[in-house]
């Protein structure tokens, strides 16, 4: 909670002290006439001392009031809420893809008895961490619009283009880190005594033995996924731009380019909240999965 508060404060002062008055850009775009300037500044509260502005910002935050957009004068919360649904869809689908791809690649690279498959999986997960989302997005679009792949039955449906492809691109970017962690943990747990014990009890090299090895690794994987959830927020910005999807990512970019401070500020506050929440959820999930964490404290 304290962390989120400091982050919010940081956001407020970074935007205020960074120089540049939001009314400059309003003037430049002819949205405000010079003679109205003083009145507009007063209505936005910009004529007050910084510390008073900060106080009223915090008071507003407690009432879930993030101020109004400088451009269309609509409440920031409404502007963000309108764009939230498509981003939530994309981020959820993307996280799902990241977990599926990450687990799959990680297990394959640590567990496959075929050298080729293991090396291939490791190679793909290295690729996933290195390729910029913008490039994978463009490659995916090209692949589906130039090759016959796009004409497969079902591939022309709105939701495949609209959600599946962006989610795959977004998830792929996060899958590399997850795959790496799964690989490391599985390789390490293989030499643990409980694995020899399980083998001695007659568990074959198969799904049951894999679960035996994977379970102790899950807490780490879960906390990594929580980190990736915060990272996904940044990833959606690019994915939405590449696929021309509406969403809060594009809202963030346009609010920065227009210097619409209240909206940018609201979105950064949202990002900090999502991060803090995902940490809490990850911690309780880890407790649920791993009995070793429950006993101690």
């Amino acid at each position: 909670m304290l962390t989120a508060f400091v982050a919010v404060t940081l956001t407020f002062f970074a935007l205020r002290l960074g120089g540049g008055d939001p009314t400059d850009s309003l003037m430049a775009q002819n949205l405000v006439a010079p003679e109205q300037l003083a009145a507009v500044r007063a209505s936005l509260g910009l004529d007050q001392p910084l510390i008073l502005q900060y106080a009223s910002f915090l008071a507003g935050l407690l009432r879930l009031d993030l101020g109004v957009s400088l451009f269309n004068k609509r409440p920031v919360l409404t502007v963000i809420a309108e764009q939230l649904a498509p981003t939530l869809q994309l981020a959820t689908a993307g996280l799902l893809m990241a977990i599926l791809l990450g687990l799959g690649l990680g297990i394959l690279s640590a567990w496959s008895r075929k050298r080729m498959a293991a090396d291939g999986a490791r190679w793909v997960s290295n690729l996933a961490t290195g390729l910029p989302v913008a490039l994978t997005g463009i490659l995916a679009i090209l692949l589906f619009s130039v090759t016959p792949l796009g004409h497969l039955p079902g591939m022309s449906l709105g939701w495949t283009r609209g959600l599946l492809l962006p989610a795959l691109v977004l998830g792929f970017a996060s899958a590399g880190a997850i795959a790496r962690a799964v690989n490391t943990e599985l390789t390490r747990s293989r030499s643990e005594p409980y694995m020899s014990a399980a083998a001695a009890r007659g568990l074959q090299h198969g799904p049951r033995l894999l679960w035996h090895a994977l379970r102790p690794a899950l807490p780490l994987v879960i906390s990594l996924c929580a980190l990736q959830a915060a990272f996904l927020f940044a990833g959606t910005v690019v994915t939405e731009t590449v696929f021309s999807r509406p969403g809060i990512g594009r809202l963030l970019v346009s609010s920065i380019l227009q210097r619409d401070y209240p909206v940018a500020q609201g979105l950064v506050v949202l990002a900090a909240l999502i991060y803090t929440l995902s940490q809490v959820v990850a911690d309780s999930l880890a407790l649920l999965v791993d009995p070793r964490l429950r006993g101690g404290s």
Binding site: T11, L17, G18, G19, F231, L252, T276
Partner: peptide, 25 residues
Amino acid sequence: VAAANAALAIPGLVLAMLIVAAIGP
């Protein structure tokens, strides 16, 4: 450490975008 942890609650790229917002593109 406390300051670093607080700043880390904002994902690196979003923090960078915040700084661009403050300085201007």
